[in-house]
């Protein structure tokens, strides 16, 4: 026998938060229990930094000490934004697995809970130790500021940070939208992997050397530059930034924030629409 599901009305915000805090505690306890996970993450982060340092020192050496007008200071700040964002992004790994729940009829277990299914997936699949990656990136930024005497204001970091957070929201929404198609076409692994490829290949390399006009056009379609490249541009080249966007850096930030909120609502509605097609198994 099959049953059609409709999205339940989510519980109050307080109840959702309570459940999420429980998941958070559970993830923290698992991270402490499974120490190998922390060792793995730190090994990865340290090696990333080592390879990154060698990579960019070679690139700068072969290119007269700069890379498309960026020197060590810009690259350090860009590295900070990249790693910080990847660290936060790690908390949302669950959003890359939604289609499993759909094609393997695992949605029932989520729908029977008094919390929105997307929040439930976020909570239960959270890769908690990833947050250490963000903490490590702050340490590297402080070291970079001391070594290269980088001049950064709290306001700059705030603006850049907000843009990175918006990038995380937009990309996670894209993950959810892509996977909502699984209610119609089943396995959407191909779409998810393509998005992962875009994210991973573009986020790890700065895109500022691409001509700015092309750069901004591309970012409208694929907002991957919001993760790290645009925040860094905003800090070190705000004049160019303002002349390109015409609305100033604060205006640009507000625009992106509003766009992220809009994407969030569209995603939620689209997921609810897709869920109406879900056919679970029952007795």
């Amino acid at each position: 026998m099959t049953t059609q599901f409709h999205l339940q009305q989510p519980g109050g915000i307080r109840r959702d938060l309570k459940i999420l805090v429980r998941y958070f505690k559970l993830n923290l306890m698992s991270a402490i229990e499974f120490k190998m996970g922390i060792v793995t993450l730190f090994t990865n982060v340290i090696l990333n930094l080592f390879v990154w340092l060698i990579y960019w020192s070679v690139i700068l050496d072969t290119n007269g000490g700069t890379f498309g007008s960026w020197g060590p200071s810009e690259l350090i700040v860009w590295y900070f934004f990249t790693e910080f964002t990847i660290g936060i992004f790690g908390l949302f790994t669950g959003f890359a697995t939604i289609y499993y729940y759909v094609i393997e009829t695992g949605m029932e277990s989520l729908l029977s809970k008094p919390i929105h299914p997307l929040l439930d997936i976020f909570g239960r699949e959270m890769y908690f130790v990833s947050i250490f990656r963000s903490i490590f990136s702050i340490v590297i930024l402080i070291a970079g500021i001391l070594i290269f005497n980088i001049k950064l204001s709290i306001y700059d970091l705030f603006l850049g940070g907000i843009l990175s957070v918006c990038a995380i929201i937009i990309f996670n929404c894209l993950y959810v939208i892509f996977q909502t198609f699984s209610f119609w076409i089943g396995n959407v692994e191909f779409l998810v992997e393509t998005l992962v490829d875009v994210e991973m290949n573009f986020i790890r390399l700065p895109q500022q050397f691409i001509p700015t006009t092309i750069l901004f056009s591309v970012f409208v379609v694929i907002p991957v530059g919001l993760f790290a490249t645009i925040p860094t541009l905003l800090i070190f080249n705000s004049a160019l930034f303002s002349s390109l966007t015409k609305i100033g850096e604060f205006g640009f930030m507000m625009l992106i924030v509003m766009f992220s909120i809009l994407v969030l609502f569209v995603t939620r509605s689209f997921f609810a629409f897709g869920l109406q097609r879900y056919e679970g198994v029952g007795e």
Binding site: T194, D197, N201, F202, R204, L205, Q207, F209, I210
Partner: peptide, 9 residues
Amino acid sequence: ITIAMHLLI
């Protein structure tokens, strides 16, 4: 997609 960024650099 995989080769684009390294190639551009």
